[in-house]
Design a protein around this nucleic acid. Structure first.
Length: 240
DNA sequence: AAGCCGGGGTG
DNA sequence: CACCCAGGCTT
């Protein structure tokens, strides 16, 4: 049989990810977070625009200014009309306000001159200002109903702990991690799966001091197994 | 494919 | 004071 590249998903990877998808969806119904941009009434404009607000910024922080922001700028046209100086003032409370103001302004200018419709191909999306891999996937997910993963540090951390660490430094260029992320959301209700992973990674599978003892994956997670052997060696108890 | 950048929050 | 956060852009 042919040797498999370390950048490919193994059959074991795929089945473990598929099982995780189901458990995440069940967990999400009970413990998923409630953010304004997830409400059924949230517009496509809000769903896409908020992604710029969320960049390198905690979701709870964005939630704090969400209502005021989208009441002030109810659509792409209103947002495109705002001056950069004004946007900077509005965005100061959540940080990264200078680059965020220019990004969001560029995105609004594009959207308002294209009837709020973004391209669906990766190639064309790459041409849109302020749209990198993450936002491109968000656009395809929320506007074009494609099964795309919101590949951020949360999704990366969960999959890397659950299965194994990536090879490359940048999550956006690691072939194995990218394949794992796509496989994870390649099923029913990809939007809920995306939100479920992000929530699980933010609440339980946290960067610092994860709650492995209370995790639904503690029996099957690779990271949890290394923790067990560590605590056995050290004779300590898992922190919760 | 790595480096750089950039602000507020948290322990 | 480090580290973290729903990354984009330049080299």
């Amino acid at each position: 049989m042919a040797l498999m590249s370390p950048d490919q998903l193994t059959r074991s990877d795929k089945s473990r990810i598929t099982r995780a998808r189901g458990k995440l969806l069940a967990w999400f119904k009970l413990y998923g977070r409630d953010f304004p941009w997830r409400r059924p009434g949230a517009s496509q404009y809000e769903r896409i625009c908020v992604e710029v607000l969320l960049q390198r910024t905690r979701a709870e922080t964005v939630a704090g200014i969400y209502d005021a922001f989208f009441e002030r700028y109810p659509d792409w046209l209103n947002l495109a009309s705002a001056s950069t100086e004004e946007l900077e003032e509005v965005l100061k409370p959540i940080g990264l306000w200078r680059r965020r103001a220019s990004s969001i302004s560029a995105l609004a200018n594009y959207a308002s001159t294209h009837r709020g419709e973004f391209p669906s191909s990766e190639r064309e999306l790459a041409e849109v200002p302020a749209v990198g891999q993450y936002v491109a996937n968000a656009i395809q997910l929320f506007q074009h109903n494609r099964r795309k993963p919101l590949v951020d540090v949360n999704m990366a951390r969960f999959l890397e702990r659950y299965l194994r660490p990536r090879r490359l430094a940048d999550i956006r260029h690691d072939p194995w991690l990218q394949a794992a992320c796509h496989w994870l959301v390649d099923g029913t209700d990809p939007i809920s799966v995306n939100w479920a992973v992000l929530d699980h990674a933010a609440i339980t599978c946290r960067a610092r001091k994860p709650f492995c003892g209370a995790c639904i994956f503690r029996r099957t997670c690779s990271y949890s197994k290394t923790l067990d052997s560590n605590t056995m060696l050290k004779g300590g108890a898992a922190r919760t």
